[in-house]
C-alpha cells in the first residue's frame, strides 16, 4: 500500500501554531469575555459539521487529487507518473464523449426545470381549492428513494412499459427508449426534469411567498397588469431565489449517477455515460484508479468554476 498522506503529516509544531492562532482569535482582545465565550460557543457548534466536512469531503478530495498523479489498479502499489493520467484522459475519446454527455444532460435537465418549476410555483401560489393536496402530490417524487425511482422508470420505459402503452393510444409505435442512441439520453433527461421540478418548485414557492403582497398591491394601483407585475415585481424580487435554483439544479444534475447505472449502464454506445459514470467505470470496472481520480479532478474544476460564476451572479442578484 502507498503511504498515507495528510494524516501522518500534522507535526507538533503545526498543532502548537494553530492552537495559539485559535487562542488569539478567540480572546478578541480580552476586554469582553462574554463575547469571546460566545465566539467559542459558536465554534463548538460548527465543530461537528467541520469535522465531518474534513473527514468525509476534504480528505477524500485531497486523496483523489494525489491519486490523480499515480498509476494504481488497487492490486499493486501506486506508482507516481506525474501528469500521465491527465494526458491519457485528454487522448481518450470516451472521456471527451462523456464530458459532452454530461454537459448535455446538465443543461437538458436544468433549463426546463427552471421554467417548469417556476410555472408550477406560480400556479401553486394562487389561492385555489385543493392546493394543499396538489402541493403534496408534487412533492412526492423527492420523497421517493432514488433507486426505486430508477427501477420504476426502467419498467415504464420498457418496450411494453407504460410510456409506450400510453403513446400507442396516440398512434405512436413502440420505442425501446433506453436502447436507442437517440432516445436514451432524452429519456434520462426526462426523469431528471420530473424529479427536479417539485423540489425547485417548492423553493420558488417559498421565494414567491416571501414577497410582501404590498408590492403587488402598489403595482396594481400603479396600473401594472398581470404580466407587467410578473416582470417588474415578481421576477426582480425573486432573483436571488432564481439564482439559487440555477446553481442548485446545475450542480445536482451534473452529479447524476444512479439512473445511468441502473437503467442504461452508460449505453447505448456511451450516449448516457455521464462523467460520474465514466469515473466509476474507469475506476471500478477497469481498475484505472489514477485516471478515474484525474477525471474527477476535471469534474471538480468544472463544477467549481460553475459555482464561482453563479455565486457572483447570486451576489449581484441579491443587491437591494
Amino acid at each position: 500500500m502507498g503511504r498515507e498522506i495528510g494524516a501522518g503529516r500534522t507535526s507538533p509544531s503545526m498543532v502548537r501554531r494553530s492552537a495559539s492562532l485559535l487562542r488569539r482569535w478567540g480572546a478578541g482582545g480580552g476586554k469582553s469575555s462574554l463575547h469571546s465565550h460566545l465566539r467559542w460557543a459558536g465554534f463548538f457548534f460548527v465543530l461537528p459539521a467541520l469535522i465531518h466536512l474534513v473527514i468525509f469531503k476534504f480528505y477524500p478530495m485531497l486523496q483523489a487529487f494525489r491519486l490523480s498523479f499515480f498509476r494504481y489498479d488497487l492490486m499493486s502499489p501506486p506508482v507516481f507518473t506525474g501528469l500521465e493520467n491527465y494526458k491519457l484522459l485528454w487522448e481518450n475519446p470516451l472521456f471527451h464523449q462523456s464530458f459532452w454527455v454530461s454537459v448535455k444532460y446538465m443543461f437538458g435537465v436544468s433549463i426546463p426545470e427552471w421554467f417548469f418549476a417556476l410555472g408550477l410555483a406560480l400556479l401553486l401560489n394562487r389561492r385555489m381549492p385543493g392546493r394543499a393536496v396538489i402541493r403534496l402530490a408534487y412533492f412526492f417524487p423527492i420523497a421517493m428513494s432514488q433507486i426505486v425511482v430508477a427501477m420504476v422508470w426502467k419498467f415504464m420505459y420498457h418496450p411494453f412499459g407504460l410510456v409506450n402503452t400510453i403513446l400507442e393510444t396516440f398512434g405512436i409505435g413502440r420505442i425501446n427508449w433506453l436502447s436507442m442512441e437517440e432516445s436514451a439520453l432524452p429519456a434520462l433527461i426526462a426523469i431528471g426534469i420530473w424529479r427536479g421540478i417539485p423540489l425547485f418548485g417548492v423553493i420558488y414557492l417559498a421565494g414567491l411567498q416571501a414577497i410582501p403582497k404590498e408590492y403587488h398591491e402598489a403595482a396594481i394601483i400603479d396600473g401594472a397588469g398581470v404580466f407587467q407585475r410578473f416582470f417588474y415585481v415578481t421576477i426582480p424580487l425573486l432573483l436571488p431565489t432564481i439564482m439559487f435554483v440555477m446553481v442548485l439544479s446545475l450542480l445536482s444534475a451534473v452529479k447524476v449517477f444512479l439512473n445511468p447505472l441502473v437503467m442504461t449502464e452508460g449505453g447505448p454506445n456511451g450516449t448516457t455515460r455521464v462523467l460520474p459514470y465514466f469515473i466509476y467505470e474507469t475506476g471500478f470496472a477497469f481498475f484505472r484508479m489514477g485516471e478515474a481520480a484525474a477525471a474527477s479532478m476535471v469534474l471538480f474544476v468544472f463544477l467549481f468554476g460553475l459555482t464561482l460564476i453563479q455565486l457572483r451572479l447570486l451576489r449581484r442578484g441579491g443587491v437591494e
Binding site: P212, E217, A218, I221, A224, V233, P236
Partner: peptide, 16 residues
C-alpha cells in the same frame, strides 16, 4: 384599481 384615479400610501411604504 388602476382606473379609479386614486393613489394610496401604504403603511409599510411598499417602495419597490
Amino acid at each position: 384599481p388602476r382606473d379609479r384615479d386614486i393613489a394610496m400610501v401604504f403603511q409599510n411604504y411598499a417602495l419597490y
